[in-house]
Each structure stands twice: as C-alpha cells, then as structure tokens.
C-alpha cells in the first residue's frame, strides 16, 4: 500500500476538495504556491512587506473565487492572475515603493545557466544589474516586463489582466526595453 505521507496529493484533487469548502485542502494549495505567488508579488511591488500583503490578499481572493475556477488553465496561472490584480489594486491605493528584492536564487539557476564558475559569476552580476535597471522603470512598464519577459505571458494576457489594449501593452514593453537597455549601458 502507498504511504500517504510520501505520496503527493494530485493538485486537481486538492482543488476539487477545496471547492467543497475544505480548508485543509486549500491550505495545502497555499503551501504549494506561496513562494511562487510571493515572488511574483515582490517583483511587482518591490517591497517584501507589501508583497506579503498582496500574497495574502491574492489567496483570500482565490478562496472566495474558487468555485469559479474551472480548471481550463493551471491553478498556478489562475492564482498568478489574481496576484497581478491584487498588486494592481494595491498600487492604486498605496504610495511609491522601493527597490526590487528578489533574493534566494536557488543554486540550480547558476548551474544550469553556466558551464563554469566565471560564467556563473557573470550571470549573477548580470542579474543584479538587470534587477537594478528594472527598479528604475516606472511601475506600469516594469509590470509588463515582469509578466512578459520573466513569466512569459502573451501581450493579450497582459492586456486582459491589466485592463489595457494589446497595443498599449506592446508600446509599454517596447519603451521599457529601451529604457532597460539605456540603464544597463549607462552603468557599464
């Protein structure tokens, strides 16, 4: 017989159970997705404390809207969209936030992306510089860059989630790329 302690529970099953109002199933979903949601929130709002609030808000919204989740997209995609909305509502209401803390890069990031130590150092340096450059972008531009270039969203998904046109998303992204390039060039 399989040991339930080591057998990971299927996510679809967890979702279905949570949709019946089972909090422990939802708690497991939160546990599984907390770091991903927090990372996205942090990338969007640039402040750990606010990102924690956004994460909490996103999961609460998810709990309330769970009956509407049909499973046509992955739960991760769904909760990420909710997170962007939560961050967006927060941004409208709060003041300006600070830099872009994305710490805790797992070791796999360096080892998979580089063949040797020198290359790994270069990658790290580059990431730091890109983060600093991202930090210089106005929020609306940074948001589209984060969603497109880090999370791989399409222009359409970005436009729909942010309530802007596809053209506006493309223009924002284009401007953001040019600004990033200028910041990076200015630094080197």
């Amino acid at each position: 017989m399989e040991n339930p302690a080591v057998e990971p529970v299927d996510e679809a099953h967890l979702i279905r159970t949570a949709q019946t109002g089972d909090r422990s199933a939802f708690e497991e979903l939160v546990r599984r997705h907390q770091h991903g949601v927090f990372t996205l929130a942090l990338r969007l709002v640039n402040d750990r404390e606010v990102a924690a609030d956004v994460t909490q808000d996103a999961f609460i919204r998810a709990w309330r809207g769970l009956s509407r989740f049909r499973g046509d997209a992955a739960f991760k995609t769904w909760i990420h969209r909710i997170t962007v909305n939560a961050a967006w509502s927060m941004k409208k209401r709060t003041g300006r936030h600070r830099a872009l803390p994305l710490e805790g890069a797992p070791p796999i990031a360096d080892t998979t992306l580089s063949g040797d130590l020198e290359r790994a150092g270069e990658n790290l340096e580059l990431r730091h510089r890109l983060r600093a450059a991202l930090d210089q972008l106005p929020r609306p531009q940074r948001t589209v860059v984060v969603l497109k270039d880090i999370y791989g969203w399409s222009h359409g998904e970005i436009a729909e989630t942010l309530g802007i046109t596809v053209t506006a998303a493309k223009v924002r992204l284009h401007r953001a790329h040019h600004r990033l390039r200028e910041h990076l060039e200015g630094e080197s």
């Binding site: 939160v30 927090f38 990372t39 750990r48 805790g104 998979t112 992306l113 990431r127």
Partner: peptide, 28 residues
C-alpha cells in the same frame, strides 16, 4: 545579454516569509 539575464531571473524564487500560510488561513 538582457535576454540571458531575464532567463536567469526566471529561475529565482523569493521564499515567502515564515508564517504566511497561517496568516492566509486566519484571514479567510
């Protein structure tokens, strides 16, 4: 170069603060 840096950023995870899960559950 920027594209490579983005690829590298995709691998990063910022660990959620301890106690976040309990906070979420308490806030439901």
């Amino acid at each position: 170069t920027i594209d490579r840096a983005f690829t590298a950023l995709q691998q990063e995870v910022a660990p959620a603060p301890p106690g976040l899960v309990s906070k979420v559950m308490a806030g439901l």
